[in-house]
């Protein structure tokens, strides 16, 4: 059974510890602008939502990559960017309907959440348990999936889920 990131926005205080830890894993520096998890704040700061890739099943990013630079890690279920293979064409960034794969112009490659190979750094540092790493069949994580399905409302996508 894969594990999945469970995000509970109500616990988030927007402290950005997750962004720092993530960016450290990605670029070796504390640099929220390079993080694959982002906290969105709105309603004047009254609402905070950590947001990252849900590792959706038939991942658009993986499917559309013209050079096979995004592959499935069968142990974690993560869709992982092989930076050495990525040419930086960015087509995945417009294909992913969640906006959770983005281009890093410094490195010339795209970045997304890869679940840190099974020990997500964002979860390690989150002080409020807004981020946890749980069994994917956990009831609550289905809520993320529900959202994913909502974004894939075309009939094709619905069929896609039933395969």
């Amino acid at each position: 059974m894969h594990k999945a990131l469970l995000i509970k926005p109500v616990h988030c205080t927007a402290c950005q510890q997750c962004e720092m830890a993530c960016s450290y894993m990605k670029v070796g520096a504390f640099n929220p602008s390079k993080s694959a998890i982002k906290i969105f704040t709105f309603d004047g700061g009254g609402v905070k939502v950590p947001y990252t890739c849900t590792q959706c099943n038939e991942a658009w990013c993986m499917m559309v990559c013209p050079v096979g630079a995004i592959t499935l890690n069968t142990e974690t279920g993560a869709k992982v960017v092989t930076e050495a293979r990525c040419v930086g064409c960015k087509v995945c960034t417009i294909a992913c309907p969640f906006g959770t794969i983005n281009y890093n112009s410094d490195k010339g490659v795209v970045t997304k959440c890869d679940l840190c190979n099974g020990t997500p750094a964002c979860v390690e540092v989150c002080p409020t348990n807004a981020l946890t790493y749980v069994d994917a069949d956990n009831l609550n994580s289905d809520r993320m999936q529900t959202h994913a399905e909502k974004s894939h409302t075309s009939a094709g996508e619905v069929a896609h889920k039933t395969l």
Binding site: T13, A14, C15, Q16, Q17, M20, D43, G45, G46, V47
Partner: peptide
């Protein structure tokens, strides 16, 4: 009180948002 709010990097989160 609407919500609490942390400053950058803060696990304490003493900040308040009110309406």
């Amino acid at each position: 009180l609407v919500s609490t709010h942390a400053c950058f990097g803060c696990p304490i989160s003493c900040g308040r948002y009110s309406k």
